[in-house]
Design a protein around this nucleic acid. Sequence first.
DNA 1: GTATTTGCAAAGTTTTTGCACGTGG
DNA 2: CCACGTGCAAAAACTTTGCAAATAC
Lengths: 141, 141
Amino acid sequence: MSASTESWQERLRASGHRLTPQRELVLAAVEKLGHATPDEVYAEVRLHSESINLSTIYRTLELLNELGLIRHAHLTDRAPTYHSATGHEHAHFVCRGCKKMISVGRGEMEAALGELAATYDFSPDYGHLTVFGTCADCRED
Amino acid sequence: MSASTESWQERLRASGHRLTPQRELVLAAVEKLGHATPDEVYAEVRLHSESINLSTIYRTLELLNELGLIRHAHLTDRAPTYHSATGHEHAHFVCRGCKKMISVGRGEMEAALGELAATYDFSPDYGHLTVFGTCADCRED
DNA sequence: GTATTTGCAAAGTTTTTGCACGTGG
DNA sequence: CCACGTGCAAAAACTTTGCAAATAC
């Protein structure tokens, strides 16, 4: 975990960007929250700095996303959800009923989907896959 | 295909709704387009009726979605993508690079994921699965 | 010092809502 | 007929952009 916290600053610099407190705060917020919309990130960052602006949140999320430090998906209707990309990769089974999330190791998912993906000459983003469906508890017919 | 075109009107009526030309046009547009954002549906519907309003498109898409006649996903950044639910089910591989979508039959996807899903006692929504990744053309390293 | 980044405010997009009129059943 | 649905216009929600001041290096 310390291995990745060392390199993100370097990655910023390497790409010609500057290390600002806003960028640290946004990344920290995304990592703390796990999954969050821009608004939620803003609220979290606001707890630590009064003056940061929403547009900075958007610009920073976009930058961190480009650098691969965070990822985003559009799980809900209005608003993308961002999350850290520095932790270990895993896919999710998400229950539409109770919203429960079951984490599945990247390896298991890759083993299951690999062959099919190869057939289509496609390289899935295994560490980032979300499979919607119904869990055992919510399946009653 | 004629089997399902018979029942959607019934499904509307059964749920206490009325059969209007706007609703027919919107459903037809979604089925014709395959995948479309509300705006694209609007454009398509406009070809057939000058007077239909965008807000009607939104209201109708929401209704058809509730009735299960169409489904939607949030594949791209701004704007949900609607598609018919009356046709045959399929999953998608979506390339993050070129945005190309590869359709995969439900059966194939189920065959690949079934065992893993069973392990977790989870029932994936195979007909609506979207797997992000990179297609052959965009994979160059 | 100077090029990047930020805050602010204003504009752009997409989606929702209130209401009077129109229309399907 | 009468409740449901539609068009219209205005508002809300979300995101982007221009620019001067601030700041990282």
